[in-house]
């Protein structure tokens, strides 16, 4: 079923000085697929996200999205292609309100620019109203509407994590990269989050690449899992296969 290839990493390597953070990595994500990316601390998961989103350039290798190479694009261009992400150490716009955090993310779909802002004609007013409606709709969907005028830095931690997901969705991605969304959550929140991710995937009809340390979350919702250790892919497969893979067990339990 999941046949259309969306994201394709080919032999991606990145080095920081002497450290090879990701080495000859190959993996694919198809349309409407929920893939997990796991590995011990420092395995290179976040670095993979940074490679895909153009924050870092690969030392060698190639990344394709929708059949086109995105290896040398700037991050905002990659987002425009349809890749959105959240950050492991939350990076909201702290001094902006919840509303504005999401509004800013509509930037790619904005027709009015500087001149419209100055002239403030009818088309500008209409577009502002449209965006405002869409933001409110998104916030309502994720139960954040009551916080819309709160500065995002004053939001409770769990809400900040959810707001990051909302903000990423506002860019209208085809694939969503989530970096440890369950970090710091209690078990009930984690279950809510699992439902949320599943819901997002179905509702917006997108693929999700999930980095997560909590095995219950990963095993619970991912259709396929890629395992990294010291920058190398050591396993890939369905959750049951990964659970019993000796290499994975060794990587997690040590020698």
């Amino acid at each position: 079923m999941n046949s259309t290839l969306l994201l394709n990493l080919q032999n991606c390597t990145i080095r920081f000085g002497g450290l090879t953070a990701v080495s000859e990595l190959n993996f694919q994500i198809h349309e409407n697929e929920l893939v997990g990316l796991i590995g011990p601390n420092g395995a290179g998961k976040t670095t993979v996200f940074n490679l895909i989103t153009g924050v870092y350039q690969p030392t060698s290798g190639r990344i394709e999205f929708d059949g086109k190479s995105i290896s040398n694009l700037r991050p905002y261009q990659i987002t425009a292609h349809g890749i959105a992400r959240t950050f492991q150490n939350i990076r909201l716009f702290p001094s902006l309100t919840v509303f504005d955090n999401v509004r800013v993310a509509f930037h790619l779909h904005l027709l009015s620019g500087v001149n419209h802002a100055w002239w403030r004609g009818a088309s500008f007013a209409k577009e502002e109203q449209d965006i405002s409606d869409k933001v409110i709709e998104l916030l309502r969907l994720f139960n954040l509407e009551q916080h819309r005028n709160t500065h995002s830095k004053n939001l409770p931690y769990g809400d900040q994590r959810r707001l990051e997901i909302v903000r990423a969705l506002a860019t209208r991605p085809k694939i969503l990269l989530l970096d440890e969304p369950a970090a710091g959550m209690n078990p009930t929140e984690k279950i809510e989050l699992m439902n949320l991710i599943q819901f997002v995937k179905d509702k917006f009809n997108i693929s999700v690449l999930l980095v997560e340390h909590d095995m219950q979350v990963v095993m619970g919702i991912c259709e396929r899992i890629v395992v990294l250790d010291y920058g190398l892919k050591i396993a890939e497969g369905a959750p049951e296969q990964i659970r019993s893979n000796p290499k994975v067990i060794e990587a997690y339990l040590g020698e």
Binding site: Y76, D100, H107, F124, A170
Partner: peptide, 28 residues
């Protein structure tokens, strides 16, 4: 007028976090 528009909020986003702004599709 510039700053108080959807387009103009981008200036504040760039100020708050350039990397996040780029990730939201903003050409910093």
């Amino acid at each position: 007028a510039l700053v108080n528009s959807s387009f103009g909020r981008g200036f504040l986003a760039v100020r708050d976090d350039e990397i996040a702004a780029e990730a939201m599709g903003i050409n910093t």
